[in-house]
């Protein structure tokens, strides 16, 4: 049963007279607990597709279905509420708030959702950090962490509200191979625990080890193939 799907998803961008195609007629669907990667050459529309899947962007035509429900016509506030509740984003750069401690950064989505009381939020945030081996860094500011640590905090924040979908855009792009492997393992683990994980990546190893690969070229979807190392 597909929990997240696109139907003829198309996104154009206007810059004055010129029209760019970011994503063209993409129809994919994801099942619960799936670990999928999106690959393709630079500029092929991978990030754009991810933003559309995560309800950050609005399609020009086509639709994104969440549990079979159309989202294309939802107002921004409704999409924001869905993002908060169901989606966790990890971007290539860590994107933490510099004034907040690690713990406060992780608690940010929880506080906005406001489903737990403060103590529960704190212990939940500590739990997520502990799961990523970051429990001793909770009181530090992002500027006091290494790149890999920051990325792990970003993952922790993406997990804060126990989202059903984790969307990551080249999460290992700024990391060395050891840290990349750690982040990748983490994401894989999440999918085993029932989160649907969709990762944009250039990393060959990732692509091979993922359950499924969606390939884009010029915003268009290539036929899905069984993944072989030589292809990447």
């Amino acid at each position: 049963m597909s929990v997240l799907a696109t139907r003829n998803l198309t996104r154009h961008l206007h810059d004055g007279e010129v029209e760019f195609t970011l994503v063209e007629d993409v129809s994919v669907s994801f099942a619960e607990g799936e670990f999928a990667v999106i690959t393709g050459p630079s500029g092929s529309g991978k990030s754009s597709l991810l933003y559309l899947l995560g309800l950050l962007d609005v399609p020009t035509s086509g639709d994104v279905l969440l549990d079979g429900e159309s989202t294309a016509r939802l107002p921004e506030d409704a999409r924001a509420a869905l993002r908060l509740r169901h989606f966790g984003f990890v971007f290539q750069f860590h994107f933490l708030l510099p004034e907040l401690t690690v713990l406060d950064n992780v608690m940010l989505p929880m506080r906005q959702l406001a489903r737990l009381d403060e103590a529960a939020m704190r212990s939940a945030a500590r739990g997520v950090l502990a799961g990523l081996g970051m429990e001793d860094q909770a009181r530090k500011l992002p500027s006091q962490l290494s790149g890999g640590q920051r990325q792990r905090v970003a993952v922790a924040r993406a997990l804060a509200n126990q989202p059903r979908f984790i969307l990551a855009d080249e999460p290992t792009g700024s990391l060395d191979s050891r840290n990349s492997a750690a982040v990748f393992a983490m994401l894989q683990d999440l999918s085993r625990r029932g989160h649907t994980v969709i990762v944009v990546t250039h990393d060959a190893d990732f692509a091979v080890r993922a359950g499924r690969r969606i390939k884009l070229v010029d915003g268009r979807q290539k036929p899905e193939v069984r993944i072989q190392k030589s292809e990447i």
Binding site: D77, A80, R83, F89, L96, R157
Partner: peptide
């Protein structure tokens, strides 16, 4: 970042 996380306008 906050908007992407889901803080409304």
């Amino acid at each position: 970042i906050m908007r992407s996380i889901g803080l409304p306008a």
